[in-house]
Nucleic acid binder design. Sequence first.
DNA 1: CAGTGGTCTAGACCACTCG
DNA 2: GAGTGGTCTAGACCACTGA
Lengths: 232, 232
Amino acid sequence: MPDGRRGYQWVREETLRRIREHRWPPGSLIPPETELAKEFGCARATVGRALRELAGRGVLDRRRRAGTRVPLHPIRQAMMRIPITRVEVEMRGEEYRYTLLERTRARPPVQVYSRLALPEDADMLHVRALHLADGKPYQYESRWVSVTGAPGIVDAPLDTVSANEWLVANAPYVSGEMSFSAAEATDAEAEILGTARRAPLFVIERATWGRAGPITAARLAHPPGHRLVTKL
Amino acid sequence: MPDGRRGYQWVREETLRRIREHRWPPGSLIPPETELAKEFGCARATVGRALRELAGRGVLDRRRRAGTRVPLHPIRQAMMRIPITRVEVEMRGEEYRYTLLERTRARPPVQVYSRLALPEDADMLHVRALHLADGKPYQYESRWVSVTGAPGIVDAPLDTVSANEWLVANAPYVSGEMSFSAAEATDAEAEILGTARRAPLFVIERATWGRAGPITAARLAHPPGHRLVTKL
DNA sequence: CAGTGGTCTAGACCACTCG
DNA sequence: GAGTGGTCTAGACCACTGA
């Protein structure tokens, strides 16, 4: 091996190689840290770090006393990087534009208040907006923001800064959920996004909670052709 | 603070708290490792590990000499766990069934051979299958496997084991890609999945390469209602 | 209860890069 | 050049848990 240094990255890649080439086949136990450290000529902590990272990716399964095992059915962990929409568009090298379509203080519909576990007469702001990339519709955003969860929202300049971006900077959150799905465009959505009627939209739904309770629930719809890509 | 131990996990959570509560606001520089180690009463390596993990999640941005910064626009890293379909269904507590619809040795269509960078007369196996959960269509799989990339595939018992599962166990891969999107069901897909015509499908596309070249390209389509969920 | 991974430490040196 | 994070080490003790 023409590799002088044997750092944790080298150990990590060598281990990955052995797993992928089935030198350590699915379901098998690999040697303990101490042994690998001896073989690789490095400290046990170095091996530990390498194996820990692989376990974090789902490539290994580690348990005390039981040892480190190559999983029989590796769970693919797809890491999707999702920046705020403006940055996402700019990273594609396209010109970003944003249009506020609606900003209304109102009672939320059932789906929203039940999903966030809010009372049905909660004081919320409903924001609808269109994000454009190079002048073409990129994402249609429909969002409900709790006024008690993010008080400043009522004074936020939502005609220039998207609610998402404002919230990131101003509403600390402690937990959240996100989901991906496909849905048929409603007539209103089709018109706003400039797609055919009942076109298949790629939908991201997001909900976040702060220390004081629910902050926001958003539905972000992309026109057909949009893809989320990741490496394995 | 009623917490006796100050391990790296404690440091990680405390740091996360300070970021989320904006005690260390977006865009700001946090104190160097040495200083935090003093404040938290632990070794620098312990702080280092905590901050490294947060940086890995995109919650911090670290650079030598420049220090550790809270990003102005955090990039949400959504980690999706995607097991093989059988396990995915079983984890939902549903009964898994699998039907092989087609198994043909053939020349691939343009999209497939160009995506995998194969010659257009490549020797491939085309497999179509339906995965069912509790008797209901769960996923329609259309897959092309390179016979040179995974020679054993021609003898694999694909009527009982899905191609995916067989490949995981038998075809070491070194790299791959995956993408998510929404697409309209073709008439054939609609019939197989039992959906309305032109229904919006959630589509996962996957391609993998081995040491010796391309292995497989697959398109996995789910009927409307399917969601991929993750925590933030 | 012994062997495995999990964690921590103190110290050292290295590698980058900002001022 | 100096200060930051990046990495490594040797050793230690702890926490689980399977045999």
